[in-house]
Simulated scan of single mutants.
Amino acid sequence: MIAVLGECVADAFAERRAGELTLRVLPGGGPANTAAALARLGTPARFLGRISGDVFGELFRERLAGVDLTYAVEAREPSTLAVAGLDDAGKARYGFHAEGTADWQWTGAELAGPVLDGVRCLHTGSLALVRPPGRDVVEAFAAAAARRVTVSVDPNVRPSLATREAYAVERWCAFADILRLSDDDLAFLRPGEPVERVCDEWHAAGARLVVVTRGPAGALVSLGGARTEVPAPQVDVVDTVGAGDAFTAGLLHWLDGRGLLGGRLDGLDPATAREAAAFAAKVAALACTVRGADLPRDAGAVAGR
């Protein structure tokens, strides 16, 4: 099983008409998207999240059907709301309503006990690693988990909610075996710096596998400094919401299916890492063919072709 720790966010897509604004709400949040995608691909997934009891929380639980919610927290605080607008390429720009919401209120007691029993990999990141007051609890939990499972981190940068300094990627690399981020994330975190140099610094800090996704340009794969690229499949794009989360799910699903998760990725070589990323790119492309952060119902079969 793969455990995913982080937030679930209500993604409200705005449609403007004369004199009114209509919001169409879909379940989102990077970690929740990844957990749902793993389940859709056929990999057992456990979601460690704080799910509100409000109407959005009901929507999240419906979306996470098939995901183990045994250790999800039933939170009293409201859900986080993100209002998104899409540009002509289907790319979202978000405005967040996130103060005092459920996703950031983690306590050590909520992540204690058998939450990682039966787990080979922990995936986390996104806003849960940078939003107070719970960020220190989440980081400490991930660092401790690295002693027993593979750890994957996705910064999933949101500049409107956290400063550049809040994204302590170099520190996270001390416990992260896998680091997946987008080229937009990289441009925000390390503006103007060559991607190869940044990857090497993150390898030196501890991350074994670094993958930088580049939208229609594919992805750069760096395994301990050995680099290769994979192309992005051509699809009819509805929107790109959740494509990065789907990529992460595809990557972890593929590695898990080959028995490569559970340790420090010692059995992974550059050619195999490229195969994993190529599969992940196919999964990400599938996410672009549907509205919102979702995958087609037959995603496992389609991606496996």
Rank of each mutant, 00 (worst) to 15 (best):
R46C: 13
L129H: 07
L255C: 05
G85R: 14
A128F: 09
A303G: 04
V9M: 09
D239P: 11
A128G: 10
T124E: 04
L26W: 01
R208W: 00
L127C: 03
G244I: 11
F279K: 01
V230N: 03
A140G: 15
V83N: 15
C288T: 11
T107C: 01
A207M: 07
T240H: 08
A287Y: 03
F47C: 13
V119S: 00
L161C: 14
A35I: 02
L251F: 12
L268G: 09
K282E: 05
L5F: 07
P31H: 03
A293V: 05
T272C: 14
V119F: 00
S182G: 15
R180S: 09
R214A: 14
R50S: 09
P296S: 09
A273V: 04
L5P: 04
F56T: 02
G90M: 08
T101Y: 08
D298M: 11
R93L: 02
A109S: 15
I178Q: 00
F247H: 15
L265V: 13
R264I: 02
A207S: 14
R50V: 15
R40F: 02
D298P: 04
L179K: 01
F175G: 04
A278F: 10
K91W: 00
L186R: 15
L268F: 02
A226N: 09
A277V: 03
L59S: 14
P78F: 10
A75F: 09
L129P: 00
R24M: 12
G49F: 02
V283W: 04
L41C: 07
P233F: 03
E139K: 05
T124C: 14
P159K: 06
T80S: 13
A89Q: 14
G218R: 12
R297L: 10
G300W: 01
V290A: 12
A226V: 12
I51M: 07
L81M: 14
D88N: 09
A45T: 05
D54R: 13
T240R: 13
F13V: 12
A243P: 06
E139S: 04
R305Q: 13
D68S: 11
K282C: 07
